[in-house]
Simulated assay, not measured.
Amino acid sequence: MKREEQKLSGEFLKDQWFEKVLVSMNEALFKEQGALLEDHGHIYPTLHILGAPRSGTTLASQLISSFLPVGYINNFIATYWKAPVYGIELSKKLLGLEYVSNFKSSFGRTDAIREPHEFGYFWNYHLKYPGLQQQEKEHEKEIDWEDLSIILNNICYRFDRPAVFKSFLLGFHAAKVCQVMPKTCFIYIKRNFLDNALSILKLRKKLNGDVNTWGSIKPLQYERLKELDVYAQISGQILALEYEYFNQLDKVPQKNKLFFRHEDICEDPASFLGEIGELLNTHDTSFNPEILNVQPFQKRIAEVSEGEKTKFLKAKDRVLQLFPEFENL
């Protein structure tokens, strides 16, 4: 299955020859990786970060991978999306496990080789998603959950510790994956609506090169939302994703999930990390990290004109009229 790529512009355009090299490498290693996979069972928990685009999920992943003893997919390992065992072992040998982030990113993309990566190709492949649009409930039957479980368990085993991921697509199947892998944990990051919406508008301009082109993950309601104006599309994207993720997380045991505000994480990252540590300790009692005194982060407050603010708030009301089920959020 060929992955449907997002429309990117400028500095975000991909090097097509490099992409061909990576595809060839992954196909070759994938055939050999099977002999390296081991059945250790579900020893370590995995932690999956959810939220709307531009809600602070990248900062959360950088904090967790920097200050908690977890494995994470860096930009080097991500190039081995069909053969992560090879990527992890090479990364451990060449780059080491411990790293403190530079806390820089551009629309969720990081540059340094040891910075966290979303591992999008991996999730598209294993969840059988052609692109970034949420699939209907019946799609879960097409996913090989046993195979995904084996791969995730091996990833954790190669790190010899719990692993953290940004897993927007997996969030649509949070309830199912918790049934298959009971130690799976989720955290949801929520950001001030206006700041979030304006940041997505900026993403469309910079990343896509066209404010009218949809940016990032698409909820189940995408086909209806795409017929609306830009402000309603973005408002609907935030509300719909929250609705879909929350519906899944409602079915996840309380001991497997936490919810955070982006603004609170920025103000008190140490408390955020402490709660994550307690969450993982519930599923791995040997996980008792020392939480350092991490300095607060300056909250990114988008500059907004009264005109744009009014447009987004009116658009939000219009979306809530079209999708009254979102009101309960």
Results as ranks from 00 to 15, higher is better:
290 E>A: 11
308 E>N: 08
75 N>G: 15
117 H>S: 15
315 A>L: 00
322 L>G: 02
295 Q>H: 15
123 W>E: 12
257 K>A: 08
291 I>M: 11
224 R>M: 13
119 F>N: 07
149 S>Y: 08
59 L>F: 07
21 V>A: 08
252 V>M: 10
286 S>K: 09
28 A>I: 15
218 K>F: 00
104 K>C: 04
254 Q>D: 14
128 K>N: 14
215 G>Q: 06
118 E>R: 13
210 D>H: 10
164 V>S: 06
278 E>Q: 11
115 E>D: 09
66 S>Y: 09
272 F>S: 04
18 F>T: 10
56 G>H: 06
38 E>M: 06
3 R>H: 15
287 F>T: 01
126 H>E: 09
143 I>W: 03
316 K>P: 00
290 E>L: 13
14 K>Y: 10
306 E>S: 12
13 L>H: 01
317 D>E: 09
122 F>I: 02
206 K>V: 15
211 V>W: 15
108 G>Y: 00
126 H>P: 04
325 E>R: 07
234 I>Q: 01
24 S>A: 15
271 S>W: 05
13 L>F: 01
220 L>W: 08
36 L>N: 02
47 L>P: 00
149 S>Q: 13
263 E>I: 14
87 G>M: 07
296 P>S: 12
100 V>P: 06
212 N>P: 05
52 A>S: 12
127 L>W: 09
15 D>T: 05
203 L>F: 10
57 T>E: 02
91 S>C: 12
19 E>R: 13
29 L>E: 14
320 L>Q: 04
45 P>H: 04
30 F>V: 09
318 R>S: 05
87 G>R: 08
329 L>D: 02
195 D>I: 02
20 K>N: 14
115 E>W: 05
102 N>K: 09
190 K>F: 05
112 A>R: 14
59 L>V: 02
172 F>W: 05
248 Q>D: 05
275 E>I: 04
290 E>F: 09
307 G>F: 02
270 A>S: 15
196 N>W: 01
103 F>P: 00
65 S>H: 15
230 V>F: 00
129 Y>I: 07
212 N>S: 13
178 C>G: 05
324 P>Q: 03
160 D>M: 05
262 H>D: 11
233 Q>T: 00
188 Y>Q: 08
105 S>G: 01
180 V>G: 07
280 L>A: 00
91 S>N: 14
88 I>V: 11
85 V>E: 05
107 F>R: 04
32 E>M: 11
136 E>C: 07
127 L>Y: 10
86 Y>T: 08
117 H>Q: 14
244 E>Y: 13
66 S>V: 10
323 F>E: 02
161 R>W: 02
90 L>S: 14
18 F>W: 12
291 I>Q: 11
319 V>G: 01
34 G>C: 00
59 L>A: 05
187 I>V: 10
187 I>A: 10
247 N>F: 07
184 T>I: 08
174 A>S: 07
171 G>Q: 00
4 E>F: 15
91 S>V: 10
161 R>G: 02
132 L>E: 06
182 P>E: 08
33 Q>C: 00
142 E>R: 13
278 E>D: 10
136 E>V: 11
92 K>W: 13
13 L>R: 10
289 P>N: 06
279 L>R: 04
309 K>G: 07
5 E>I: 03
91 S>H: 11
31 K>M: 10
74 N>M: 09
80 Y>M: 04
83 A>R: 10
288 N>E: 09
282 T>M: 10
267 E>M: 11
168 F>E: 04
297 F>E: 13
